[in-house]
Simulated assay, not measured.
Amino acid sequence: MPIIVNLDVAMAKKKMSLTELSEKVGVSMTNLSLLKKGKVKGVRFNTLEAICQALDCKPGDILDYEEP
């Protein structure tokens, strides 16, 4: 999969746990965990926006592209 999810890196930089991020974003811990592991087919823009607000980052800090 050429899209790399760096949510764990962004969370570590802000020293934020999955539980805390889940509470701030309003997304279940299960769904955030799946996103963190790269096990999702997509992410809604409003979810991405909420994650970026909570972590004070940009989408490019969370998502990256790797040549296949």
Rank of each mutant, 00 (worst) to 15 (best):
54 A>F: 01
10 A>D: 10
7 L>H: 02
26 G>L: 08
11 M>P: 01
6 N>S: 12
44 R>T: 08
43 V>A: 09
66 E>P: 10
36 K>A: 05
35 L>T: 03
59 P>R: 00
26 G>D: 04
20 E>F: 02
50 A>Y: 06
42 G>A: 07
14 K>G: 01
7 L>D: 07
66 E>C: 09
21 L>Y: 07
41 K>S: 15
65 Y>A: 10
12 A>C: 07
40 V>M: 14
13 K>P: 01
41 K>G: 11
48 L>F: 07
16 M>S: 01
3 I>H: 05
50 A>K: 09
44 R>H: 10
40 V>N: 14
52 C>V: 00
61 D>P: 09
48 L>R: 07
9 V>W: 01
13 K>V: 12
45 F>A: 08
26 G>A: 11
52 C>Q: 04
59 P>Q: 04
15 K>H: 11
32 L>M: 12
50 A>G: 03
52 C>F: 00
68 P>Y: 07
5 V>P: 03
26 G>Y: 09
31 N>I: 14
58 K>S: 08
11 M>W: 01
23 E>A: 11
50 A>L: 14
20 E>V: 13
49 E>N: 14
45 F>P: 06
47 T>L: 10
48 L>K: 08
39 K>W: 01
57 C>E: 06
57 C>L: 03
9 V>F: 10
27 V>C: 08
19 T>S: 13
68 P>R: 04
35 L>C: 14
33 S>V: 12
25 V>I: 02
23 E>R: 12
63 L>A: 06
5 V>Q: 00
6 N>I: 07
23 E>Q: 12
5 V>S: 04
25 V>W: 05
56 D>C: 08
56 D>M: 07
5 V>G: 07
23 E>G: 08
3 I>P: 02
64 D>H: 11
18 L>K: 09
56 D>S: 10
57 C>H: 00
6 N>D: 11
14 K>H: 13
12 A>V: 00
31 N>R: 15
6 N>Y: 12
19 T>F: 04
64 D>E: 09
10 A>R: 01
55 L>R: 06
11 M>E: 03
26 G>T: 05
20 E>S: 12
32 L>E: 03
16 M>T: 08
30 T>A: 14
3 I>Y: 15
66 E>V: 15
34 L>H: 09
2 P>L: 13
59 P>I: 05
40 V>P: 13
31 N>D: 12
56 D>A: 08
43 V>Q: 04
64 D>V: 02
28 S>V: 12
2 P>G: 13
40 V>I: 14
35 L>K: 06
24 K>R: 15
11 M>C: 06
